[in-house]
Design a protein around this nucleic acid. Structure first.
Lengths: 225, 225
DNA sequence: ATGATACTCGAACGCCTGTTCTGTGTCAAG
DNA sequence: CTTGACACAGAACAGGCGTTCGAGTATCAT
């Protein structure tokens, strides 16, 4: 007989697999799977075993269950309701400091600082899941029409096409900024979103590090409340 | 026997009642009701009658059904998943024209132009349901740090407290504008969000109509894509 | 060895639930 | 008046589903 991996603490492979299945099933069918369906897709032949794991997942707080009710289970903590995007807040962005790109460690359930955005609000194909959000600190982005306290949602990128708004690090000036990006024959033009302000012209020799593309800006106007 | 209200077109009272029940049940139990539960709470004694109405609601597109699956129904169009707000887009806002306040006719299912915003994104107690959204047209709001194409979410209001950002109609100037509102002894001060710009000072005699409070600003940066 | 613990299986039980069929009363059109 | 669509009730059927129970098998500390 094969050896079984033992993990008295934390999630075993089976737990993770069940969790993943519930999520993908929910996304596809718009409702949770039954115990037997979980068993089939996770190679568990007995419904009692699935129930056994479900109990553990409930005790560990990963799911909630409505006993007796058919398919009465749901993931907790995240609310992956299919049309909501959860974007991690990986820090602040300010003129004087580089952008804190989120570490790429795939921490499935550490949804601490994050914001939720409706899928339907997301432009085009940006619905990928490597987006991250930053809180703007200071008034240094006013020429990008972005206020102190605003939230910018970025997609990691090292290069950009003309006309895209990017977050760049200008090492020569030791400065982070958000501008519309244009590559021109003599160098780069960084155009502020505010049409009344003038662009920054860069020669090809000057260092310009693209850190990401701006996907969305959100401003909560709840100050003085 | 009692007379039955007939409405071959549109939703009858029963349809509406079932729809409402499904929504409230879902919110409370995190999963849809069964046919029998609908019957009990809507005073329908037969499961077949509930099924009868459910079929109609499905055909009319108000719900989706997974036949054979227990509690396999869900509201469509709105996705009232408890933590999503649906805000109607009631038009555009531009400097030269008054704000189109949404007509207050309570059209339950005409969710045509609207945007979805996660509850968790909403400031404080603004989670009321009389919010409305406007698309900014033109560059006239740049001193409010708001771009052409941005979406502003407003709460209807006729008065405001100091420090709140309001949408006002200045009839003397024939102009709509978004500013921070301050009532001062000599009149009103309308402060632009952009700290580099100067406020508008108004005397008490000048007309100032507050139309709403700004709750949120959303900018989708998907142009040139 | 031995018992405790963790894990797995298979089957049976019984409620819950969607489906279907028969029948009844109402109302408008022919 | 007849007819047929419509709204509704009630009962019975069959399958889905969570639950429970008895039993078996590793792994490990004692």
């Amino acid at each position: 007989m094969m050896m079984m991996v033992r993990k008295s603490k934390g999630l075993g492979e089976r737990h993770q697999r069940i969790l993943d299945f519930i999520e993908s099933y929910q996304r596809e069918h718009k409702h949770p799977p039954s115990i037997r369906e979980i068993g089939e897709h996770c190679d568990i032949s007995s419904t009692s075993v699935v129930n056994y794991y479900l109990d553990q997942l409930e005790k560990s707080g990963h799911i909630e269950r409505d006993r007796k009710i058919s398919r009465g289970m749901r993931l907790t903590g995240n609310t992956p309701l299919g049309d909501m995007l959860r974007i991690p807040m990986s820090g602040v962005i300010q003129a004087g400091e580089p952008i804190p790109i989120p570490s790429s460690d795939f921490n499935t359930f550490s949804a601490e600082d994050s914001i939720e955005v409706a899928m339907s609000l997301m432009p085009a194909k940006e619905k990928g899941k490597d987006l991250f959000a930053l809180k703007v600190q200071g008034d240094s982005m006013i020429d990008a029409m972005i206020n102190d306290g605003d939230i910018v949602i970025l997609k990691p990128a090292q290069e950009a096409r003309n006309g895209e708004m990017v977050a760049v690090w200008l090492s020569d000036r030791n400065e982070t900024t958000l501008k519309y990006y244009y590559k021109e024959k003599e160098g780069y033009r960084l155009q502020p979103a505010n049409p009344t302000m003038k662009p920054i012209m860069l020669k090809k020799t000057e260092a310009l590090e693209i850190k990401g593309k701006v996907v969305m800006v959100i401003r909560k106007v709840d100050r003085y409340n």
